[in-house]
């Protein structure tokens, strides 16, 4: 297994090289005057004829392989460059924005997994009966919703109508406490930092901002967990030991809770890991809707402004995340299920 892990990790530099070449390659289609648009956001800003000065200032006139070599040199020295759209160094931007997204993903996993399992069990137990169809259709509708529609509706309801769960990550007063230095940010994840600072008002404030996006994500992903739970439940329910348990006259509830559920959980748990990755990858839309300033939102805004320094930086970061994340999932799966052998 170690050789397998090593081989997969060896792939990492190749992936990162591929990713950066791809982005640089695509960007090479742009002329210097297209690249300069990063620095001028609308026609209204075309005040004096300084396009040439800007092109010169940022070295946009150089051929792309030169820019690539320059960029690569900087990266090897640990400098991912300065992002015009984020107004900070790319490395800082990732360091500060990624924990936000991770926090949301981790929060969302809980209701997705538990809700999904519950729905899956209900559906399996009532296999091919009305309740089965109803839960499945409910979950599949969520799976079929454009995530931004679900998100906006949730925001309208929970914030606009009820006034409960505001957009953003924290309320103004909490931001002020943090900016005044009364609160140390250890991880960048507000809930965890609040516990570490023993600051419960901020903790509750952070949780309050996480609820609406979490509920939205949950509905979108339930069908995914439901399907896996349901099929492995059905599989288990047909197994001999369950039939035996039933034959022994155990009440159905006990049969399901004691015997069936536990064994059906194995594939579900491994999938949960994969889901965190999936959530992180598709977070841009949810973050946009809830004005949740995470890495997805950052990247999308950067890419739209052709801020290639930022795009490259975050793409590399995602590359690392995906390679390592996928590896962890594979290894976990092999550990849990001995039938799987890593080739």
């Amino acid at each position: 297994m170690l050789t397998y892990i090593a081989r997969r990790l060896l792939l990492l530099p190749v992936v990162l090289f591929g990713v950066s070449i791809f982005i640089f390659g695509v960007m090479s289609f742009l002329s210097p005057y297209e690249l300069v648009s990063t620095y001028i956001k609308s026609p209204e800003e075309l005040k004096n004829q300084s396009l040439d000065a800007l092109v010169e200032k940022y070295g946009l006139n150089d051929p792309w392989h030169l820019r690539y070599i320059r960029w690569l040199g900087n990266v090897l020295h640990g400098n991912l460059g300065y992002s015009e759209s984020a107004n900070m160094y790319v490395l800082d931007a990732i360091k500060q924005r990624f924990p936000a997204s991770l926090e949301l993903a981790l929060f969302a996993v809980v209701p997705v997994v538990f809700g999904g399992i519950w729905l899956g069990v209900v559906s399996a137990v009532h296999h091919n009966r009305l309740l089965d169809h109803a839960t499945r259709i409910f979950a599949i509708i969520g799976w079929s919703l454009p995530s931004f529609v679900a998100g906006i509706l949730a925001l309208m309801f929970f914030y606009g109508y009820l006034g409960w769960f505001p957009p953003g990550r924290l309320s103004a007063w909490a931001h002020e406490i943090i900016a005044s230095g009364g609160f140390r940010q250890y991880t960048g994840m507000n809930t965890i930092d609040a516990i570490l600072n023993w600051n419960w008002p901020i903790f509750w404030d952070a949780v309050r901002h996480l609820v609406a996006p979490t509920i939205t994500l949950a509905w979108l992903w339930w069908a995914f967990i439901l399907r896996i739970t349901r099929s492995s439940m059905l599989d288990v329910l047909n197994k001999d030991y369950v039939t035996t348990a039933r034959a022994k006259g155990l009440p159905e509830r006990l049969v399901i809770n004691r015997h069936a559920k536990r064994n059906a959980m194995i594939p579900v748990t491994t999938v949960a890991g994969l889901m965190v990755l999936g959530l992180l990858g598709g977070m841009a839309i949810t973050e946009t809707v809830f004005d949740y300033k995470g890495i997805g939102l950052l990247t999308v805004q950067g890419a739209q402004q052709l801020d290639y320094t930022l795009v490259l930086g975050t793409a590399l970061f995602y590359g690392v995340l995906l390679v390592i994340g996928n590896l962890v999932v594979d290894v976990l799966y092999a550990i849990i299920d001995p039938r799987v052998r890593l080739e």
Binding site: L11, V14, V15, V19, F29, G281, T299, Q304
Partner: peptide, 23 residues
């Protein structure tokens, strides 16, 4: 298969945005 692996490790949304922003 390694090419497939590389493509699978590619942040899809970023790539899609880059392609559409450029072209």
């Amino acid at each position: 298969m390694r090419v497939v692996d590389i493509f699978m490790s590619f942040p899809f949304i970023i790539a899609a945005i880059v392609v559409t922003s450029v072209f």
